[in-house]
Design a protein around this nucleic acid. Structure first.
Lengths: 212, 212
DNA sequence: GTCTATAGATTGATAGAC
DNA sequence: GTCTATCAATCTATAGAC
């Protein structure tokens, strides 16, 4: 070890700046300056700017995905013991709720939420690819469970509706993370609780829409 | 005039590169190189890189917004003569369909669709602000008409659901513009027609979801 | 592990000849 | 209007002293 955690301070600041300004718009100087560490520390501890981005994702996504996986398993188990099919609403909630609840786990996490919103919306291809490398397995499981919940929906339609739900969720995450200014001086953001209910309700209704 | 339209060629190339790589990741040298014009031409014709971005939006958004406005007016008129309330589905379609139909108006337009998707998702704050400057009035009208279509929905809920719909639409636009690679080697993109129906159907169902 | 110093490349913008 | 040449700033990354 070194200082009261140089590595951690770099991760905290990088997370915030990548989220608020984007990856390309954030220089190593901005990161090391705000973290009050030396410019060379990033390359010493992480190897490169890209590897730093990967580390930012890895730190939060490893425990978060563990929790999401557990909740998806639980949803499956409950439906099985109750002898009923899965509901799209509970599957989506198992995915979305742990993510948005990160918001309550401290000020740093809200930046991460914003960063995930960014990655979900594919704003920056490098950010998106790095994010997807940590998400591949979960995405496949998600598609499978939603297929069980909506067996009448053609697989093609299912895929695209899930994309729309991810688009809506990504947008919600950017709001929750404080990444967007309200247009036209509108109302203040809702509570995390309300936002979860709103985006899950919206997405579930969209997924269950009658087939055209 | 000069060459067979130096200014137009710069706009075409800038539109494509801003859409595919992002604003910050695109250098003036990349633009002028691909457009086969001199490096100094951008500053001569537009003044700065930011002013070029504004011109890219202005070129397509002025006629597009005129059409969207006309369609929203038409939807209102039809509902009035038929003596029935507005439907959320037709309001959303009046907004979304002209945008996605740009896709058929030539290869250049598909890049613009992708760029709008980018701007909608707030990936880059400068791109988003520039885009919003061209959209302010239409957004207010949209919120008003959706309020008429869903009078039982609290104004707060309405606002957020519209945000989710915009998130879903932005995601759809990025797919339609060819901006995202399909994860897990999935199926090919649907036709524009199908995509319009899917995203309008999804968003309308989400907006009309029962209030929690 | 942390620091200074700097290499080496790239950027947006401009001056001035033609 | 177009061109060359270049400035001044910025960037990532690294070498080498401590």
């Amino acid at each position: 070890m070194s200082q009261p955690d140089t590595k951690e301070r770099i991760l905290d600041v990088a997370e915030e700046l990548f989220a608020r300004q984007g990856f390309h718009a954030t220089s190593l100087r901005a990161i090391t300056g705000a973290a009050e560490v030396n410019l060379a520390a990033v390359n010493y501890h992480f190897g490169s700017k890209e590897a730093l981005l990967d580390a930012v994702f890895e730190r939060r996504l490893t425990p978060l995905n563990r929790e999401r996986q557990a909740r998806l398993d639980a949803v499956q188990a409950v439906a099985a013991t109750e002898g009923r099919p899965l509901r799209a609403e509970e599957v989506l909630r198992a995915l979305i709720e742990p993510t948005l609840r990160l918001y309550e786990s401290g000020p740093g996490a809200s930046s991460f939420i914003l960063l995930v919103g960014r990655a979900l919306s594919g704003s920056d291809e490098l950010v998106r690819q790095t994010f997807l490398q940590h998400m591949g397995a979960l995405f496949a499981l998600l598609l499978d469970l939603l297929g069980q919940a909506l067996p009448q929906l053609p697989r093609n339609q299912l895929f695209w509706r899930l994309q729309f739900a991810l688009g809506a969720t990504g947008h919600a995450l950017r709001w929750a993370g404080g990444g967007l200014e309200l247009p036209g001086g509108f109302t203040q953001p809702p509570s995390v609780e309300e936002l979860i209910d709103m985006v899950v309700g919206f997405s579930a209704a969209g997924m269950e829409a009658p087939c055209p």
